[in-house]
Design a binder for these strands. Structure first.
Lengths: 330, 330
DNA sequence: TTGAAAGCGCTAACAA
DNA sequence: TTGTTAGCGCTTTCAA
């Protein structure tokens, strides 16, 4: 016996009204006589009727779903972004379709294009150069972009990376560090801003950073980069890492090489992931408020889906969180 | 000017064929004369036609989407599960709708019921007692369950928690530990199995564990539980924690209390999250192969959607990963 | 206050 | 090889 799900027609028939009436009642677009409403209600209850969201979407063109694409769900920064976005979405009755591009921009376009027809809007955290993302606005769906788009005309949410980097570098300088290095991940859109912040703060003192490049925004890359930084001819007395993951890897490798943080070198990262506080020494970090970023992006997207005007760029500010991986230099 | 998207009818008209022909061609359910195929192709290209997945789903009843519900996306264990599941889904052309129940079972049912009509199947990682989840099979959608269902008749994927706990406890015993304690999280379905494994291994030596209960499966709960464990009258010489997060928190608090791990106490966790290796000392852990679990669950679900027979229970085995938080006792 | 009827964009028999 | 024709389950004028 095939158990068919009840349709609006079944309800209408059983309640002795038209499908139009049921539809309007269910969506509370119109009130009816209490007799009718009661009848419909009880039939719905009895039949266990639930409207078919597909059919509904087909007509209304709205799916109550949002596509969210991140670079790597395994990175706690992105996890927090997802958390924040998801929370807001849920509160508004939306569900999140997750796209993890796994740091491979190749599939990104394909995935998002396929997704675009199944969602009411998308939030995109991408590494692809803006100039190669013309297809995104062309999808003709409300979208929010993470970062500071210069070419793309899309509402965006961004952290203030340059200011964050400036702040932490300035702090390091104030604490007496003079040989500040930056371990970056040049492939990232944010890398330039962070480096600029470091440069800016140092330039005020007539200094410049040594710059190192990691091969990925991961702990492993941080580990690998360590020896070149610490065992070079002019080892720095402070290191600003592109993110906490790299900093964590660096910390581990430094210890294995026999260096002591922060005595030999102060280390800071970005993102303030929770695991920074469980490292030894606990990691000083620039908190970009990842979860708030995700929430802000979702809020913005929902507002724009709702037809509201949204400002072009929302900047979430950075906050320096001091822990034990930084110290004062004589 | 309203830019309308091309429908199958537009394509059919422009190519001088019927919509049925276009449909069959697009879905490659049938071949046509090369002249016709060429004409359709070029029209599709020209009009930028893409089939409307909603309309398609409404008819076929398949959405090419899978609902995946986890307890807390912020926990790296779940993150890895999502990663594994997502990878398999993507490879099969499915997208993942993420549901983060945030450890609050209240919304779970509501969220999943709403989701069930928009997905072809679901994977559920839940904390709700099985007896209260009758609604899940009632949703009448293929589903895969994480754990070992006894009441629910659902295909499942599970780690071998008891064996994992047995292994690590046995190892601790072999290394000379005699006062092994367990810091659990009784709300979890897995807690009982892990504790049973600890008990089993200890019983072989005529020993029994001291059992402590954490208030959440988080690092913070691990921190909080620390003092009661270390400063009690009979402090243990080894502690098995419910998961790595709790172990990490414990490690931190223990250090703050002036204890030394592993000299004063050996500590192990479950999940083998990547951040365990960045703690000091690096955390010994039972690797449950979270990512593989996610992948296995998705594979199983897709197979069952595909109409294949799937075995009731897939067990992913646990592997002990030794690091520096455990040692040998005299 | 209620209902009839025309679709939304597509697929799937079935015909030709 | 191609087309005709019913719908899928629902919303939405528009009329009663």
């Amino acid at each position: 016996m095939k158990k068919r799900v009840a349709t609006i027609r079944d309800v209408a028939a059983a309640a002795g009204v038209s499908t139009a009436t049921v539809s309007k009642f269910v969506n509370s677009t119109q009130r009816f006589s209490s007799a009718v409403e009661a009848r419909i209600s009880s039939v719905i209850e009895e039949l266990g009727y639930r409207s078919n969201p597909m059919a509904q979407s087909m007509i209304t063109g709205r799916t109550k779903a949002i596509g969210l694409s991140v670079l790597d769900i395994t990175n706690p920064h992105f996890t927090s972004v997802v958390k924040g976005a998801n929370r807001v979405a849920q509160a508004h009755g939306y569900t999140v379709l997750l796209v993890d591009t796994e740091e491979t921009p190749g599939r990104e376009r394909q995935l998002l294009e396929a997704l675009s027809r199944r969602v009411d809007g998308m939030i995109v955290y991408s590494r692809t150069p803006e100039e190669e993302m013309d297809w995104l606005p062309a999808l003709n769906r409300p979208a929010v972009y993470f970062g500071r788009p210069e070419y793309l005309k899309l509402p965006a949410v961004s952290s203030d990376d340059q200011l964050g980097a400036f702040m932490v570098t300035r702090h390091l300088a104030t604490q007496g560090h003079r040989r500040v290095a930056y371990l970056g991940f040049p492939n990232s859109r944010r890398d330039g801003e962070r480096l600029a912040g470091v440069r800016e703060a140092l330039a005020a003192l007539g200094l410049a950073p040594a710059v190192f490049a990691g091969e990925a925004p991961t702990a492993l890359a941080g580990e690998k980069a360590c020896s070149a930084i610490l065992l070079g001819r002019q080892p720095p007395d402070a290191l600003v890492c592109f993110n906490d993951l790299m900093a964590l890897g660096f910390l581990k490798a430094a210890r294995e090489l026999g260096f002591r943080v922060p005595d030999d070198i102060s280390v800071v990262g970005f993102d303030n992931i929770q695991f920074g506080s469980f490292a030894t020494p606990a990691l000083t970090s620039v908190d970009l408020q990842s979860e708030r970023m995700g929430a802000a992006a979702m809020q913005k997207l929902l507002a724009s889906i709702d037809g509201q005007e949204v400002e072009a760029l929302t900047v979430i500010d950075a906050q320096l969180v001091l822990r034990d991986s930084t110290t004062t230099r004589a």
